[in-house]
């Protein structure tokens, strides 16, 4: 079309200089370039327009057009299938599952569409770890003996996973995490790549154990109403720009994670890589305890697809 349009675009995690912040800006910039300046984006970062749940709601309602953040599972618990613990173990498997042509994308896209969300795809962060202050654990027994309390997203399967791994999961608002670590309400944070823990709480945290229990990600999404209102040409521009953002992230994410592991170590944070036996031990107990619960939460239809795509207990 010839219509000029401006999209309101939000990334709730990180400021303008974080990878997410720069990526949402890139999405806006690429749309503008592809449309010769006809389509522009107005970008907002971090908590400017509210927390994750609120921004997601505002997108579903159409007050915000596009977001780069975690799809919320409050509308449909099955969205949580993307966070299943010890689902995949390396980047090749990640690509096969989460890339825009991957099986996970096929599985989740219709669920999100029912909610009113156009899902462009997963924006990968990497394999998550557990960052703590004072002491750390590399296996179930140590975590339990040290009574390590870590902050977790309260939705299934996050707290259940940490509990199975021997930690105490404490639900804390992202904005309160820093103070909570500082005052000792929790010992640390769980489920993120080292970048977030070092960049945001680095002066508080001492250790980062790369537990690799979850694949950490955001997603590029858009209000479905707004998407449907676009003509084919404009849809093509929006989707192409989104795809470019995702592709670029897949190219750089692994290196980005390695870079920040180095930066964090140089900055005095101790990086711990658990042994294969330790990781297997955690994976076994988590798959034994959390996956059956997932059967109830997500339904066997979903879990059948998951099982047909991954080797469990391998």
């Amino acid at each position: 079309s010839d219509d000029e349009m401006t999209f309101r675009m939000v990334s709730t995690s990180g400021d303008a200089s974080s990878p997410q912040g720069m990526s949402i800006q890139m999405w806006a910039d690429r749309m503008s370039e592809l449309s010769d300046g006809r389509i522009t984006g107005e970008t907002f970062f971090q908590g400017e327009l509210g927390g994750q749940q609120e921004v997601f709601d505002q997108m579903v309602r159409g007050n915000i057009d596009m977001v780069l953040e975690l799809p919320q599972s409050s509308y449909d618990e099955r969205v949580g299938v993307m966070s299943l613990p010890y689902l995949i173990t390396d980047w090749d498997e990640a690509r096969a599952a989460y890339s825009p042509d991957g099986w996970m994308q096929q599985l989740v896209e219709p669920i999100l569409e029912d909610i009113g969300v156009k899902f462009f795809g997963v924006y990968p962060d990497g394999f998550g770890g557990i960052a703590t202050k004072g002491s750390y654990a590399t296996n179930h027994e140590d975590a339990q003996a040290l009574n390590l309390k870590v902050r977790a997203i309260p939705t299934f399967p996050n707290p259940q996973t940490l509990k199975a791994m021997g930690y105490q999961a404490v639900p804390i608002d992202w904005n309160e995490v820093y103070t909570s670590i500082q005052t000792g309400v929790v010992a640390g944070d769980a489920g993120n790549i080292i970048y977030w823990d070092y960049e945001y709480f680095g002066d508080q945290l001492d250790y980062y154990v790369h537990t690799r229990h979850n694949f950490s990600y955001s997603s590029l999404m858009m209000s479905l109403d707004r998407w449907n209102a676009l003509d084919a040409e404009d849809q093509e521009i929006v989707a192409t720009a989104a795809r470019e953002v995702i592709d670029q992230r897949y190219e750089g994410a692994q290196e980005f994670d390695a870079e920040w592991i180095q930066i964090a170590q140089d900055g005095g944070m101790e990086y711990i890589q658990p042994t294969d036996e330790e990781l297997d031990g955690w994976a076994a107990v988590v798959q034994e305890q959390v996956w059956p619960e997932a059967e109830d939460a997500f339904g066997s239809e979903i879990m059948d697809v998951v099982r047909s795509n991954v080797q469990v207990g391998g």
Binding site: G50, E54, G62, N63
Partner: peptide, 13 residues
Amino acid sequence: IEISSLMTTGFWA
């Protein structure tokens, strides 16, 4: 701005 949908904001806040 459609205000009725902004009630969501007020509620979450």
